[in-house]
Design a protein around this nucleic acid. Structure first.
Lengths: 336, 336
DNA sequence: CTGAAAGCGCTTACAG
DNA sequence: CTGAAAGCGCTTACAG
């Protein structure tokens, strides 16, 4: 049987109120009583129940992290930042991987609400996400990481995706590429919309047309990048460069290109997005748009803590991080 | 203000006991009352507090997962299996990344205990881990994944690491290699001990000596594999093959070898361990020992569920999974 | 089939 | 400085 506050009180021949005061560092306890109780707590390695505490304090010290897939290195790095910062704030985090399924996400939102988490972080919502919209309207403390919600602007931290894509494509153009294919992601993710926007902006600015044939649909994952590239490589009027809107898709493209016995970057230049850990691997050295993923996680937790403290407040905060182009070998232009 | 069972009871003009019975599908409630209450619950989207429930049921429906690092693809895949299976069992999982720090692990164990989790899964303990030993002795439901504890045998699921390493090294020997270097991991992880054991077994079985100079210490991570390989490549009597006891180290070795302008596998053969997702990447195609990481996670959760149900039981269960050698290009012997 | 009451393990005004 | 008492939101014998 787990030891309770009553047991400690009995052992110290005092009331549970006094034990409670000692645990919470309440000033009005005599030094003598305090040290005696502390000793007993120590001896029995008594740990107060956070369950009982939560019930009365109406705060659980737990947050929920809702995201797509932990084995996706991009999310893993965000999750690491979140977990680390949460620990420093003495918060526990419940991990909820949705695999991009609305159904599972809904299940998890219910579970988090039943567990009375103090707040939630969403790293992979869709542009139109009625379940999250409902939470925002209800005033549940939450922050969005990485992706946006259409129409609503709750607390959030994200990269300037439009700008990131713009930088990547502009770089290719500056180095002589005129036929640049783009591999898009999943259509109702804001990151897809924004990165495609950046691609278009760069082309337009340099007087290039947006060729429908050069715009392929992927899924942000390796497989999608692979299939889209297969199509691209088959084209008679083949592009000289591919901009994959995620590193995972760029790696899929990489495989497709190698299979076609073409060389990167001599025959075809390749640029990704995200700067996942593996992008810098020798033998790959993918040029890509960098995101400080752990930083996004850390900032998200801080925003959430603020929000939990000032629950009612109307003004929300959006943090927009600046992208940086990381030039490696896959684009064939090491000097900018 | 959150809506409570009292509110529902008032709205339905019945007692909280009856509402509780409806929520828990207790049979002795009249159909009329039941449907009326269900309707009200639905209308107000009332969700009972798991906090209050936990307090009285003495079960939180939460487990803790203690492991080293979420951005390590090996752990990420285990975590995925765990998270997925836990969800199916209606369990929440609290993620605790220790970065292999005993200090942080201790912090997290405290946090999990205060949160009264029903059980814990440890994926990255040391051979001698007093904190975990304490938990085992106290009878806290827990299961070990991936690594062992010296002396104690709680519920666990792991790969037969000795055999895995043995298979890898034997394969190299059979294809003519006599000078095989090994890059070991962190010394007080059971996986290091076991994999080194398998390495020795294979050499001995084939009448080869264990050369101290061929045994290098790494850290299971990319960096350790890189540095160890740098040393290996400098040797006058250079080995013809390297067995890295983790894929991450094998990738570090890969980088070191490329930097030395040597070819894999022509100049030096390379074998890893773990079969992380990236090992199959075209252009890498690392020969390695496969582990069903998600399966380990799933089995761990099932074991833990069993253990939570039969908390007192003395007999423990150890699941030992069978390794499989995945032959790709880096070992230079595609045909076995 | 239903409700009054006790209780899970804490915290916190309130009174002394 | 300390304790008795109420209460957080549920569940569950017990009685009817």
């Amino acid at each position: 049987m787990e030891i309770t506050i009553k047991d400690i009180a009995k052992l110290a021949s005092c009331s549970t109120a006094t034990v409670s005061r000692v645990m919470n560092n309440h000033p009005s306890v005599s030094e003598k009583t305090r040290s005696k109780i502390k000793q007993i707590i120590e001896n029995y390695s008594y740990r107060p129940s956070n369950i009982a505490r939560s019930l009365i304090r109406k705060k659980t010290g737990t947050i929920g992290l809702v995201f797509a897939d932990i084995t996706n290195p991009f999310y893993a790095e965000i999750a690491k930042g979140i977990e680390d910062e949460a620990r420093k704030c003495n918060y526990s985090v419940i991990f909820c991987a949705t695999n991009d399924s609305q159904e599972i996400q809904r299940e998890y939102i219910h579970l988090l609400r039943e567990n009375r988490v103090d707040g939630m972080i969403f790293a992979s919502i869709r542009l139109y996400d009625p379940d999250v919209v409902k939470l925002v309207i209800e005033g549940i403390p939450l922050v969005l990481v990485n992706r946006r919600l259409e129409g609503l602007r709750p607390d959030s931290v994200a990269l300037d995706n439009v700008k990131g894509a713009y930088l990547a494509v502009k770089h290719l153009i500056k180095h002589g590429h005129k036929k640049i294919a783009v591999i898009r992601g999943v259509s109702d993710f804001s990151t897809d919309v924004d990165r495609f926007e950046g691609y278009k902006n760069a082309l337009i600015e340099h007087g290039l047309n947006i060729e429908d044939a050069f715009v392929k649909r992927g899924d942000f994952k390796r497989g999608g990048g692979y299939s889209a590239s297969k199509e691209i490589l088959k084209m008679r009027n083949r592009p000289t460069a591919i901009f994959a809107t995620s590193d995972d898709m760029a790696l899929g493209a990489w495989e497709a290109i190698l299979e076609s016995r073409l060389r990167i970057p001599q025959d075809i230049a390749l640029v990704g997005f995200d700067d996942i850990n593996f992008a810098s691997f020798k033998g790959v050295e993918l040029t890509t748009v960098s995101q400080r993923k752990d930083e996004m996680g850390i900032k998200a937790v801080r925003l959430l803590m603020e929000r939990i403290m000032h629950k009612g407040e109307k003004v929300s905060r959006q943090i927009l991080l600046q992208p940086k182009l990381i030039i490696r070998k896959s684009c064939g232009c090491n000097i900018d």
